[in-house]
Amino acid sequence: MSPASGAAAVPQTGPSPIPARREAAPEVDISKMILVRPRRWGRMTAVVAILLILAWLVKAFAEGTIAWDVTGEYMFWPTVLAGVWGTIWMSVACMTMGIVIGVVCAVMRGSPNPVLRWVAIGYQWFFRGTPVVLQLLIWFNLALVFPYMGIPGIGSARTVDLITPIVATLLGLGLNQGAYTSEVVRAGLLSVDRGQYEAAQAIGMGYWTSLRRIVLPQAMRVVIPPLGNEFIGLVKMTSLASIIGFSDLLRSVQDVYYLNARVIELLMVAAAWYLVVVTLLSIGQSALERRFGRGFASGVRTE
């Protein structure tokens, strides 16, 4: 192709002389070669180690003093199923409350109106600042403060009749959840680029329309993973409500093992059900992430 070394000194007539090389690069086309994939020794070792540990755990529990047939027998016991149902609907109800309050509170915190902003800050301060068990107990014992509750001119009732364990749990967990969820939502709102608000305003959108159509859908993408976290946490937090007499899953298996003394067997029943509920939630979360991730990259690193 080009003359060998030494030619550089000779004046050339071509457009731009190519500097002389000692050796030409070998002719290689990687698409015609055999690809040797790198061995991932670390991964393989890890898989073997994990399988060994799992096998050992399974063996230990299988040989331990647990009557697994009793566990199986109580999986679908009516009391247990009632507890599962109680945990599920209470979680869903409190999370719904939490999301509604959380969105409202997050929007209030971003408001130019100082009254709204400080109301939101005060709400978060109180409900995040005290233990949730304490809040449940206060709601449940509200009758000690106000024996009667009512709306003047319409009627009133005894507080003990109004604030049942269910109502106290809804208020306690829902209001607490709202305070935490509002921070998750606020992080989501902050993650949306300012240019998005401006573009929405520039096509004549009002504040609420731009929030509903442009900003919140984009915030959702960021909000869903931590919100899933909150939801899963809440499923397990419902077990705290057993102290004020709400029949959740944990309370139900306890009711059973107080009678038959199969403590570990029934705790395993509860563990299995919690895992089932949380697994279903995680599947729902993935679906939501796909829905709100449209138009964005997936976030999984490719190799």
Binding site: D193, Q196, A199
Partner: peptide, 24 residues
């Protein structure tokens, strides 16, 4: 705000950074 939004509709804005809605 509603009046401001109405006045804005008289203008169309094209931004340096496009600012398209990425989820649409």
């Amino acid at each position: 705000d509603a009046e401001i939004a109405r006045q804005r509709r008289k203008t169309g804005m094209v931004f340096q950074r496009f600012n398209l809605f990425p989820h649409m």
